[in-house]
Amino acid sequence: MSVLAVSSLTKRYRRGSKPFAAVDDVSFEINPAETLALAGPSGSGKSTIARLVLRLIEPDAGRIAFEGADFLALSGAALRARRARLQMVFQDPLAAFNPRATVARVLDDPLRIHNIATRAERPRRIAALLERVGLDAGLAARAIHEISGGQRQRVAIARAIATRPSLIVLDEAVSALDVSVRGQILELLLDLQRQERIAYLFISHDLGVIRAVAHRVVILDAGRIAESGDARAVIADPQSAIGKALVAATPRLTRSRP
């Protein structure tokens, strides 16, 4: 059974007085331990889909089934409980966290809010989480603004996995990182996926990154699915106009220059 099944998802906004669909009749599924990438140009609806799946915004039409349950029907305590299983990592962890909070505080919150560990157990759990994402436990006392961008994104991942999610939405989660750090973070994500069978909804504008880590890809254009399929097959031989344009626009090291 799929972790996430989205069907006929639609979200309309108004541009001036004109309504337009930011997400238009989009359907896809993600299986356990699978990475599904959403690709597309700016304004294609990638991040709107992420926010709909996270229920940060409500759709105008369509259904979202998460772990087999009607996710849109949940509210209150039931929604909060289910949200522990659905986590997120954004592009800029400095914007996602209180910069003056300590790393320990950032990781303590989910453990406390979701009653995952008692107060006495939490320091040990925090140390284990830091270790799990490749950080020194001594980092716990540091403030978020004091650590590097790569370390912050590891903390964001530690926070996401603290509640043992079945799905993590990664919205341009490695886009702001230096390439050397990016590789390490991608390896960490793949390692976690193998160990914990976490599924990823992986949003990126970078086809090179998608091809490196995603099993399947959905290419969006103006809110609609232009094409989808095995990530490597689609990127190797895109069928849609937007897919072809994205592949053609991706810089290549081997390209012979005029």
Binding site: R194, V213, V247, T250, R252, L253
Partner: peptide
């Protein structure tokens, strides 16, 4: 060299495969 190796181009070996090999 490190920068070149870290580049994830459309012809790079996917990390999924590198991982799968060691799994």
């Amino acid at each position: 060299r490190g920068l070149l190796e870290a580049h994830l181009g459309l012809d790079a070996k996917p990390l999924l495969d590198r991982q799968g090999a060691s799994a």
